[in-house]
């Protein structure tokens, strides 16, 4: 076995990382209202009960609206920024990119309260739209990180070759660049969607009376009786996230293979 103790340590670390996610479905199928061991037998009733939760469906609808809009907007902004930063030189590039990427390290609560202050200051009512504005701010840096590696892998002379062979900048983008970065775009859409779907603080601060799924879940934690249903809901959400991420990873790798590059690792 390569790696010896490092391998054992890493596997132990993965157990630590996965512990909550492994426990989630266990309790979701556990026939007890108290989330504790020992287990009380198998049931699917928490999943069926989910259907009749009154608050869940509007929250889900809100979340999907927010996540889809966020995914599209942040990917569009991400494509523009990634293309600009990998292909062009322009004055003020470093500070501008720094500002755009700032939410990556800025605590979400700071983003949330500063936006809240502005929105209330200029009298914009809190709504789904204001959540989207906040989420786009937060997911765009991730989109840029993914798309930059897609654009970075592009040999600039591919684009020049297309001009040289008679294409305009627009048709060269469509015929050469877009097909080559498409996997990155799909990956960016999926990641932004997943991040937005799971985001809590910004939605909590900027949503007003409009509740997204995480905000709904957070509110349910106060009622112990509601928790098993939340475990069931969480199981579905985690399964969805893992599915989307696997698809995103598939496209990311295919993108790298396509542009003939070398895989250097994960999303960030």
């Amino acid at each position: 076995m390569k790696g010896g103790i490092f391998r054992i340590y890493t596997i132990a670390y993965l157990v630590f990382l996965y512990a909550p996610i492994i426990l989630l479905p266990i309790f979701a199928f556990n026939n007890a209202t108290v989330i504790a061991f020992p287990l009380q037998g198998f049931t699917t009733k928490w999943f069926t009960q989910m259907w009749s939760e009154p608050g869940l469906w509007p929250a889900l609808q809100n979340s999907l609206t927010v996540a889809i809009s966020t995914a599209i907007l942040s990917t569009v902004l991400g494509v523009l920024a990634a293309r600009a930063s990998t292909r062009y030189r322009f004055p003020g590039k470093a500070p501008v990119m720094g500002l755009i990427m700032l939410p990556l390290v800025l605590p979400e609560i700071i983003v949330a309260v500063s936006l809240l202050v502005v929105l209330l200051g200029i009298g914009v009512p809190l709504s789904i739209l204001t959540i989207i504005l906040g989420h786009v701010l937060m997911t765009t840096p991730f989109a840029i990180a993914i798309l930059s590696s897609a654009f970075q892998g592009l040999d600039r002379s591919l684009e020049e070759a297309a001009y040289d062979l008679g294409e305009t900048p627009v048709s060269a983008f469509r015929l050469v660049i877009l097909p080559l970065v498409m996997p990155g775009i799909i990956s960016s859409l999926l990641i932004s969607f997943t991040l937005s779907l799971d985001e809590f603080i910004i939605a909590f601060f900027l949503g007003g009376t409009h509740v997204t799924l995480p905000v709904y879940i957070f509110s349910q934690f106060r009622f112990p009786a509601a928790v098993p249903v939340i475990m069931a809901l969480g199981t579905l959400l985690v399964a969805l996230s893992v599915l989307l991420l696997t698809i995103a990873e598939y496209y990311r790798r295919r993108g790298i293979a396509k542009s003939g590059g070398k895989d250097t690792g994960g999303f960030i």
């Binding site: 040999d155 002379s157 070759a161 050469v176 097909p179 080559l180 396509k258 542009s259 003939g260």
Partner: peptide
């Protein structure tokens, strides 16, 4: 120089 063969 890199030939710029469209990989797709």
């Amino acid at each position: 120089q890199s030939y710029a063969i469209f990989p797709h």
